[in-house]
Every structure is written in C-alpha cells, then in structure tokens.
Design a protein around this nucleic acid. Sequence first.
DNA 1: TAGATTGTTAATCGATTAACAATC
DNA 2: TAGATTGTTAATCGATTAACAATC
Lengths: 210, 210
Amino acid sequence: MTNAQGISELVINRLPRYHRFLGELLSEGVQRISSRELSERMGLTASQIRQDLNCFGGFGQQGYGYHIEQLRAEIGKILGLDKQNRAILIGAGNLGRAVASHMAFESKGFRLIGIFDKKEALKGQMIKGLPIRHIDDLDDFCRENLPSCAILCIPKADAADICNTLIGLGVKGFWNFSHCDLAVNHPNVAVENVHLGDSLMKLSYKITNL
Amino acid sequence: MTNAQGISELVINRLPRYHRFLGELLSEGVQRISSRELSERMGLTASQIRQDLNCFGGFGQQGYGYHIEQLRAEIGKILGLDKQNRAILIGAGNLGRAVASHMAFESKGFRLIGIFDKKEALKGQMIKGLPIRHIDDLDDFCRENLPSCAILCIPKADAADICNTLIGLGVKGFWNFSHCDLAVNHPNVAVENVHLGDSLMKLSYKITNL
DNA sequence: TAGATTGTTAATCGATTAACAATC
DNA sequence: TAGATTGTTAATCGATTAACAATC
C-alpha cells in the first residue's frame, strides 16, 4: 500500500519476479497461495516472501494465505505498472526492432510513442504502427510529446550525448542497452542498464565453474 | 589465481563490470590504477574492490596499485573468457538476429556455431556467416558438433521443451531470453536468465519513485 | 628511506532465516 | 473452536566498510 522509500534494492529486484510468478499461477487458474507454496515454486524461503511483502503492507490473511489476483495487482501498483509513461526508442537496428516489436510495454507501465534512428534510409519505415523518424526530429518531437522515458539501442559512443540531450528535454528514465554505465551521477534521473555482455560473461563463469 | 568455489554471487556479478571498466581505462591509455581511483570511477568503495579481488588472489602491489592490463587479464581468466564454448542460437527473430549480429561472443568465452528456427521460410538465410537451419536438424547438428551452450530467443511456451532436449544432447549452459525461469532444478546445468520484462518493470519502479 | 597502497583482520551494517504470538 | 498461516520480532548469517600492519 505505502510506496515507502528506504526499501532495499534487493527487495525491488524481486518484485517483478513475484509479479511474473503470480501471473503464471493466475493463468493456471489458481486463486490463493501460501507463502510456503510460493516459496517452493520460486526457490526462496517463505520468511523472505513474507518479509518482502510486508515492506509495503499486509497483503495476506492469517490462516488463508494470499489472494493471488489481489496480491499481483498490489505489486503491480508498487512497481507503477498502472502508469503509461510515454517512451521513445532511439536506434532502430535489430535490437531496437526486437524490443519495439516484442516487449509488452502497456503491461509494464509504458507506452511507446516514437522511434528514431540516424539512418536516413530507415525514415518512414513502420514498426508496430509507428514510423521511424530521423534523429534530427528528436528535439521537436520531444517538445511536442513530452516523453518521460527513452530506450537507448545505440552504440556506446553515442549514448552519453543523446542521454544528455534527452535529459535537457525532460526525459526522466532511461532503459539503456548501450555497453556503458549511464548517468551514474544525475540525481533526478532513473537508469536501468541492461548490459547483455555482462550477462554473457556471467554465464561463461557459471559454465566454467560447473 | 585460484578459481575457488564458495565465491559469493554478488562478487561474481561485479566481475564483468570490473572487466569492462578496466577495458575502458586501457583504451584511454591508462596503465595503472589504485583501488581508490577505481572506486571513485565505478561508484564503489576501495575496500570492496580490494576484498572482491582478494577472493581470487593478490593482483595488486603495495604502494603502486594494480597493473590494469594484467588485472583485466586475470579477471578474464576467472570469468572463463579465454574459453571458446561452442554456442548455438535457437530462434532467429529480431532478438535472435540482434544477439547474433552484435554480441562479441569471441571476447566473452563463446563461439557461435549454429542458428536454428522453426520457420521453414528462414532456412538458408545467412546471419553473421552462418546459415539458418531448420529446428528439425537440431538433433543431428548437436551430435556432430557438440555445442556446450544454447541461446534461447524463443517464446516461453517452447523454452522448457527445447531446453530439455538440449540437456539430453549435452548442452551445459543456457542464455535464456524467454520470459520464464529455466531449469531452476537441474544440477549440472548453468542458466543465465535475461528477463528484459523484469528489467523494464524495475525502471518503472525507479521512475515512479524518483 | 619515506610515501603510498595493498592484503587482511576486525567492526559494522544489513539481509535472511527462524520462531512465535496474533488472528482469520 | 481448532487449524492454518500470516505479520512481526529476535537470532543468525553474510556482506560491506573501516582500520592498519605489511610491503613495494
């Protein structure tokens, strides 16, 4: 219920996973679940689940457990999935296309409203009902449409510049697929770095140490 | 030096980031760095860096700091980046293409040796010098070429089945882009789940709570 | 040698787990 | 009511930070 600050980042990291598992249970037709059952399914302890959830409020009922649909809705609210943050995509290469085409933005708090690329040749091509615009139109477009979020699928070399431009235009959140750590210093800007390369290196470590 | 087990996962998670920052320093022409300087650059404490590195060995030198090229090589060895794990890609949609085209596998311990899709129409099309094969050829291909790793860019509904098939064919590592948690139970298999959806939800939380 | 900075031990802090009274 | 399971407090465990002797 409360969106209290001071919540550990480790707890936040687990919320999307709770949300996902509860969605799966729901689509299996399950209506209620105890922290113990959920913990077995997710590979956690029941204690941890109860502690995590009680950071935000008492969503369960003694003797019964948790009402799945209701709990999922609460977690969704905490994550802000009921928002419709206007998002623009910068970079319409394979990765940008993949993200634009397959990511379910609407169920995750976002709405994709514009796509930009620096390649003249791509201009006008449609992706998910949106035309690719030239990067030179970015400024005008932002002043008119006030996106609050940008998805960066561009080379590392271009990322910092574009990021600063966009901050100047009022963008508050960045989903960054460039191979760099973005805006670590800016105070009122949220950044989520994806770093697929780091992920692959972690897999390499895991395989090496099986 | 030692590849000792019992290393905390939190330490492992930081290793790729160290590797990346050291690479950047190197390309800036810097040769040595102290834990304090590196900590300022990365937004960590110097203590943590020294503790992390000393899980694996004493890579520094008192009064001098760390030799960047040497330290980066050591971290690379710990991560297994000097390996050439044979990897196959399952699913040649936009995401699969993006990964195949733009990921620097060779510098991260992998070599892409095959690409598969269930769409007949894609058969024979080339990506990064490799022909897309039909999924029916997966079995034969694996018996001949013994890939140790598979990259799954397929719908969640297909992931568990393909994963089990591949485990039967000797695949030991999975880089999973499907929207599900894979093989949480299998003992001798390494899984790295990417979960872009979870990442986007985290961004939603961060924006909501700015 | 003196200065710098590591490797490492000790202290602190935070996160997870266990336990149990509250309560549906 | 009795049984089940939460919310919450206390105990444990692990990770981070601080401090400093070792040493280049």
